[in-house]
Write a protein that binds this DNA or RNA. Structure first.
Lengths: 235, 235
DNA sequence: CGTCGCTGTTTTGTATACAATTTATTGACA
DNA sequence: TGTCAATAAATTGTATACAAAACAGCGACG
């Protein structure tokens, strides 16, 4: 399936793997990325021994990583029955996006109030990059750029707790997407929505930012729900 | 300090310790309650060996429990330097309550839309209990009743994710309170605020519920901030 | 033919042992 | 006396071993 050493070096996720990195952190990132990238099917059972072989780590490490992922809702555990990848149905999607809508909207609003001019400039710049990605169909880079966009947003809103709560749900949305076939048209409309948001942020227009953000999240939710419906209809 | 067996049986936290309970879950609850009840000072280092002796569990179990608590933000970890209880300053308080305000307000709003008549009745009943507690100065019981009140609220809003995110911050608020000396007057005003909220919920009045909820959270935040200021001024 | 229960295997839960790193101690030297 | 380095102790990170529970296969029995 995949090997630990390759994986960890191939996809360093935000925090660099400096010399001070502990093995457990690496394993956790490896596992997290594996799930986020859809290497495991929804509901699939995760057998510790297999994951040990996969990652090369021992069970102690692995279990600690699993427990952390469980706390983030990415996997679920049943006593003496191990861990399974959390299954996300339409109802859960609605719940997740309801939460995301509230928090992201709040983040956008606070950003217009609290972000430094430098950060304002940064979102504008990153959005231009995003446009390039969509134009060039560079999906790999697009994902990374989007992460940076939201990173600036969350930093600029000056509230680590919002980020914490949101990253939790965004992880699961990311995982969800990995299980679905995206509608190509969605990228264009998504870009339009994000342009509106970016403009509002740059203008420090609170109400417009809220509105744009909400519209974007709702559209994203509906897109996911549609994809899910399509996926179950034609398997 | 305290013993595991006594602790776990003395304070069963929401999920009962049924026969299907694993030792780890017990230890985790023990530890969680220990922190929430303020048995450890803010910033204090948690030495695994000591916690082992305290709880009677082995390090494997303990570490797993600690990792979970870390994921919930109750404790922090530094590589090779162990865990310490998270310190919460005024800035963090503002962040936490900003998040709580948004989420709790949302929960209240959704409750007015989605709660069953039975649940509506339940909040009303529990609020009466709460009044009794305040009247009788039964602080121990009050805490439990409050938990039940919010439990109904979160259930009635039909969104597990909101509950998940909120319980996270509420835990830390709870911990914070354990470190401070509460203003006795606060209980009365708090009760008034909650009466307004309860009335709004019972009437399924969305806007009033939002307003009452927000007012309550803001007042609670200011009370905490004031207590913190008092505590630092007169040590 | 299907169901139930037994037994062996697999998997998870728990405990312990070893290695790496940090922290405290001690003593020499300026 | 104070600073620094070497060293010893304590603590965390990692790996492995044992125990308990769940699962799977098989045969007896209705």
């Amino acid at each position: 399936m995949f090997k630990s050493s390759q994986e960890t070096k191939a996809d360093p996720p935000s925090e660099a793997f400096g010399p001070n990195t502990t093995l457990r952190a690496q394993v956790q990132n490896t596992l997290r990325n594996a799930i986020l990238n859809g290497r495991f099917k929804a509901g699939q059972k995760l057998i510790e021994r297999e994951l040990c072989e996969l990652t090369g780590a021992s069970r102690s490490i692995l279990r600690e990583a699993l427990i952390n992922l469980e706390a983030n809702g990415l996997i679920e555990r049943q006593s003496y029955r191990g861990f399974r990848v959390t299954q996300i149905g339409p109802r859960k999607v609605k719940e997740i996006f309801e939460l995301r809508a509230t928090l992201e909207t709040l983040a956008a609003e606070l950003f217009t109030e609290r972000a430094s001019d430098q950060e304002i400039q940064a979102v504008a710049d990153v959005f231009i990059e995003l446009e390039e990605c969509v134009r060039d169909f560079d999906l790999e880079r697009m994902r990374a750029v989007k992460v940076r966009y939201y990173d600036i947003l969350f930093t600029g809103c000056r509230n680590v707790e919002i980020r914490r709560a949101l990253e939790n749900v965004i992880d699961r949305i990311h995982y969800l997407r990995s299980q679905l076939i995206a509608d190509p048209d969605r990228r264009k409309t998504s870009l339009i929505e994000m342009r509106r948001l970016t403009t509002a942020l740059v203008n420090r227009d609170q109400l417009a930012a809220r509105a744009a953000c909400l519209a974007h999240v709702v559209a994203a939710r509906d897109a996911v729900l549609k994809q899910m419906a399509d996926a179950t209809e034609t398997p």
